[in-house]
């Protein structure tokens, strides 16, 4: 199966800000943060179409999100908005600073045709089962 290894950056977006002020359980919030953006060439190598589900995996966890192509993202890098989907990929290690590294970690992205991205309620249910 096609896979790309990229450096993931997470950050704020306007849509995330608007969505969280409506509410974390709102459709607007969930749609705004459950996404990964790749450079068009990395996106094409996955042989998927715009908005299709991909599995993103780091050394610390994995998550299913929708994938978009973006000219703004350089080849070999990826972008995800802050939120519960991106946070499944980061380590809690802070190297004694208090700050986990939320930008610049290696992740593997592969197509996940037929798999469904979890909703926020499903993410909560997953946490309740821990």
């Amino acid at each position: 199966m096609n896979e790309v290894v990229v450096t993931l950056i997470s950050a704020r977006t306007i849509e995330q800000g608007i969505g969280l002020e409506i509410g974390k359980t709102s459709e607007q919030y969930q749609n705004s943060v459950s996404v990964i953006e790749l450079n068009p060439s990395d996106f094409e190598s996955l042989e998927i179409s715009e908005g299709e589900t991909v599995e993103v995996e780091s050394d610390y966890g994995s998550v299913l999100v929708k994938c978009r192509s973006s000219q703004d993202v350089p080849k070999g890098r990826a972008f995800m908005p802050y939120g519960p989907w991106a946070n499944k990929l980061f380590s809690s290690s802070t190297r004694c600073s208090g700050m986990p590294q939320l930008k610049g970690i290696k992740v593997r992205v592969k197509a996940a045709k037929g798999l469904k991205m979890p909703s926020i309620v499903e993410l909560i249910d997953e946490l309740r089962r821990l």
Binding site: Y82, N87, K88, S91, P100, I120, L127
Partner: peptide, 24 residues
């Protein structure tokens, strides 16, 4: 907003939240 393994411990302890809106 915390990495997953820090969140995991929050699910194991009594949690009290003061907020305006429903959130995770």
């Amino acid at each position: 907003h915390f990495p997953a393994s820090a969140v995991e411990h929050l699910t194991k302890i009594p949690l009290i939240t003061i907020d305006q809106k429903v959130n995770m």
